[in-house]
Design a protein around this nucleic acid. Sequence first.
DNA 1: CGCGCTTTTGAGATAACTCAATACAGGTGG
DNA 2: CCACCTGTATTGAGTTATCTCAAAAGCGCG
Lengths: 227, 227
Amino acid sequence: MYVTLSTEQAPAFMVSGTKLPCQSKVTVLNQRRHETGTHFFREGDKASHVYEVKSGVLRLTRVLKNGRRQVIAFGLPGDIIGFPNGDQHHTDCDVIATAEIVAHRRQNLEDGEGDPETHQRLLRAALREISAMQDHFMMLARKSAMEKVASFLIVLSHRTGTPVGNYTTFSLPMSRADIADFLGLTIETISRSLSILRKHGTITLETPQIVLVQDMQALIDAAQATD
Amino acid sequence: MYVTLSTEQAPAFMVSGTKLPCQSKVTVLNQRRHETGTHFFREGDKASHVYEVKSGVLRLTRVLKNGRRQVIAFGLPGDIIGFPNGDQHHTDCDVIATAEIVAHRRQNLEDGEGDPETHQRLLRAALREISAMQDHFMMLARKSAMEKVASFLIVLSHRTGTPVGNYTTFSLPMSRADIADFLGLTIETISRSLSILRKHGTITLETPQIVLVQDMQALIDAAQATD
DNA sequence: CGCGCTTTTGAGATAACTCAATACAGGTGG
DNA sequence: CCACCTGTATTGAGTTATCTCAAAAGCGCG
C-alpha cells in the first residue's frame, strides 16, 4: 500500500502503507518523504500542509485518553483533509488504501498569497467540510444502526462505486472496526446490519470487503432519514 | 428577547426575539432589519453574511423530513456562526437569549477583499469550528448520557459562568429539548442526568434554567472522557 | 386561581452493547 | 500442496443504557 504525494506545483513521492505487498513504484519529484506503516500524520504534528486526495482512502481519527476512538472521516478521492487548528493537526491520519495525494501549503489556505484560485478552492473545501460534518451530526445522533450503515453504503456507492449491469459495486477498504468507530457503533452491530441487508437481498458481499448493491432503492429506504 | 445586529464598520439594529417583554431599544445605524419570533435565518436562505455573537445565545438546527431534529451548535459570545456552503445557509438559526451580533459580509470570508485582518479572523474561526465539531463527534458517538450532560455543563460553565464564592453559576437559556437534540438524547434522559448530579451534590438547580456548580471536580469526573 | 407549558419522576420496552463461540481468509511453514 | 495459525468477520445469547409512554409536579401568566 502506497501513498503518492505531490505538491501543487510538482509531484510527488510515495509513502508505503500497511500490509499489502508492493505494487507501485515510488515517484519523487520535488518533495521527498517516506513512511513505513499506515501512519501519515499524527495529532499534534505540525500542520504544514493540507492534503487533497486524488486516489485511495485515508482515515482521520481521534482517540481519547481512555482509549475510545472516533473515526472523524474517511478521505476519499476529491476530499481535502488535514485542516489545521492553529498550526497543528488535530487528528491522526492513516492510509487505508493506496493513495495519491497532493499537498497544498497551509499558507495558501490561510492567506491568499500564492495561487488565489487554489486559496479559494481550499477555503470552499473547508466550508463544505463544515456542512458535511453537520450532516454527520445527524447521522451520529439521530439515526438507528441500520440507517447509519445504509447511509454509509450509499455514500461510498455514490463516491467510489462502479456500475456492473444494473448494479453497483464498491469496496470497503476499511475494517469493520473503522466503520463502527465512524458511525458510533460496534463491529458486531455493523456486521449484523450488513447481514440483514444481505438477507433482504439488498446487497451482496462478494468478500467482506466488496459490496454489490443489488437494490439501491431498498438501500435508500433503509437509510430512511433522508440524506 | 432581542438581537442587536451591526455590520463590521457600523452597528446596529435590533431583532425582536421570542416571548419576553421588550427590554431594549432598537438602534439602527446602517443596516436595517426587524424580525418577529425567534427566527433569525433558515436553511436555504441566501447567506450574505456570517455572524459574530457578541452577547446572548443563538441556536443552529437542522431538521430531517421525518421530523428528527439536530441542534448543530449553540452560538455563544465569541462564536462566529452561519458559515455558508455555497451561497446558502445550511442550518436554521434562532435566537434563544437576547443577543448582540456583528454581521460580516460573506465576501470578506471568501476572498481577501475588504479588511484582510477580518478575513484572517473569519477563516481561523472556520478552522476552529471544524476542530470543535470533531470534538463533538466524540461527544455524540462515544460518550454516555451522563458524560454528555456533564461535558455540556462544563463548557457552558467555562464560557458563560460567573463565580459565586467558590462556586460557579450560569444559565441554561435553552430548553431541555434543545439540550437533548444537541447531545443526541431525550429530554427525559437530560432531566434524569441533571437529577443525579443534583443528588450527588455536584450541582444545584436554582431554577430549571439556573445552574450552580458546587463541585467542579466531580463534574469533570462525571464527564470522564477528558475533553 | 386555574390553565398551559416545561420539567421531573416512574415503569416497562427495546435497540444496541458485551461477552463468547464459530467461521472464514490469507499467509506460513512443513 | 496442505494443515495450521492469526486476524478479521459473523453469529448467538444475555445484559443494560437509553428510549417510550404515562403521570405528577412546578412555574409563569392571564
